[in-house]
Design a protein around this nucleic acid. Structure first.
Length: 412
DNA sequence: GTATATTAGTTCACCTCAAC
DNA sequence: GTTGAGGTGAACTAATATAC
């Protein structure tokens, strides 16, 4: 039997909120051409996703939308059984499907689900529920679709989403059990991972090189003052890229730098999980703040009431999106990579090519650990809810001990 | 502390619009 | 009118908050 063609089921949250099926001709035909329960289940999915979009972060919406969409597509077209009739075995069957989806359900590029044309949202025929990601090293697009395998993380997320979906249905008294919860324990695709993670950080030398490059670029062309300020902030203040960017419920402004009664500088940060924190601002960082402010024709140091955006757009108004901030950082990485390759050879520069913005947070924090900063203080500056996170991710006390004790083993 | 749930970062492709 | 700064949507992986 030929595998049915997949079709998108849910648009973005903004579009879902005001969806009218008469504007979605192909989506609508899915319900007229299939058993009645399909339309009912689509409505269940819709209300679950609306609930997610309303109460959770936009990332969670996207995450759950993708999973619920796939799950329903499988139930509609492959299994052809209503999801409230599913047992553990059915969920396991679905996960096997996710582990190795049919080639015709895998794409290799990002495509819109729906295309607006003449006032109608047409389902994009090219869209696929799964996507194979070519590794950064091999950019050619003809990667073999048979090689598609979701990562362990992805598999976990799949379960998480379906479990959350069933929980919602149970609360609404639409389903009487949570088969996904039980199936997870029996899934044969999970492997226990005790591998030592490779540190995602730059060495002291690489960081120095990066900073020098940024300073040089800013000296040569003031347009790069912004890039310099961004990388200095990310590394020295251990920021996440999102914490510098404009978000729906928070706009970082210069006034978030403030001084306590002992003239210590602090920066107010709105972090992950809607947590507000103050991070210490070292004296060494102040000159970088000053030079960026002077390049923007602001006073040398910010005042508490100042509401100029923290990082300014060159064109347009308002704060920057995380996407473009990332590009600014990448620009410096690229330049530093080229320079280091010329100076010290490809091998030494390689890390600069691999590095991404989050590495700066890691680099800053790890260097603090090496300088002997108390774990508790560091944990507060990073904005972690628990010190255990700081230890496992940044310090890796256990691995260091193990490496040390294993180092001097003899061969004979 | 561990396991689970949620939220963020990464990368790609393509789009839009402000400033020259 | 170009052009490049900046935006959006997508699918994935990583980080980390929170429940247990």
């Amino acid at each position: 039997m030929a595998t049915p063609k997949p079709t998108p089921l849910y648009p973005t949250y903004k579009e879902l909120k005001e969806i009218s099926l008469s504007d979605y001709p192909q989506l609508n035909s899915v319900f007229t051409d299939n058993p009645d329960w399909c339309a009912v289940h689509w409505q269940w999915g819709k209300s679950f996703l609306e609930y997610t979009g309303r109460n959770k972060s936009e990332h969670t919406y996207v995450r759950f939308r993708n999973e619920i969409e796939r799950f329903l597509l499988w139930a509609f077209f492959i299994k052809q059984v209503p999801v409230d009739d599913f047992r553990k075995a059915d969920i396991l069957e679905y996960v096997d499907f996710c582990w190795k989806p049919p080639i015709s359900w895998i794409g290799n590029s990002n495509l819109d689900r729906f295309v607006l044309e003449n006032g109608y949202f047409h389902s994009n025929k090219q869209w696929r529920p799964y996507k194979i990601q070519a590794p950064k090293s091999q950019q050619n697009k003809d990667i073999d679709k048979k090689k598609y395998r979701p990562s362990q993380q992805t598999l976990t997320s799949t379960f998480t989403a379906i479990i959350a979906f069933y929980k919602y249905l149970m609360n609404e008294e639409l389903s009487y059990g949570n088969p996904a919860q039980i199936a997870k324990k029996d899934c044969r695709h999970f492997i226990t991972d005790a591998q030592v993670k490779e540190a995602k950080r730059l060495t002291e030398i690489q960081w120095q090189f990066l900073l020098d490059t940024a300073v040089e670029m800013a000296d040569a062309n003031p347009i790069y003052e912004r890039n310099l300020f961004v990388i200095a902030s990310l590394k020295t203040l251990f920021l996440r890229i999102s914490e510098l960017s404009e978000r729906k419920n928070w706009s970082p402004v210069m006034g978030h730098f403030w001084q306590d009664e002992n003239e210590n500088w602090w920066l107010k940060i709105f972090g992950k999980g809607r947590k507000l924190r103050d991070t210490t601002v070292p004296l060494d960082f102040i000159p970088f703040l000053e030079r960026y402010r002077l390049s923007r024709c602001l006073s040398r140091l910010p005042s508490t009431s100042e509401n100029n955006v923290l990082v300014e757009k060159i064109r347009g108004q308002g704060g920057m999106s995380s996407r473009h901030l990332r590009r600014l950082v990448q620009d410096i990485f690229d330049n530093a990579y080229r320079k280091m390759k010329e100076a010290d050879g490809e091998q030494k520069a390689l890390k600069l090519k691999e590095a991404s913005t989050h590495w700066l947070r890691h680099t800053g924090a790890s260097m603090e650990v090496e300088r002997g900063r108390a774990l508790k203080d560091l944990s507060e500056d990073l904005g972690h809810a628990s010190m255990a996170t700081t230890d496992t991710v940044y310090v890796q006390t256990e691995n260091k001990k193990r490496a040390e004790s294993g180092k001097n083993r003899k061969v004979n």
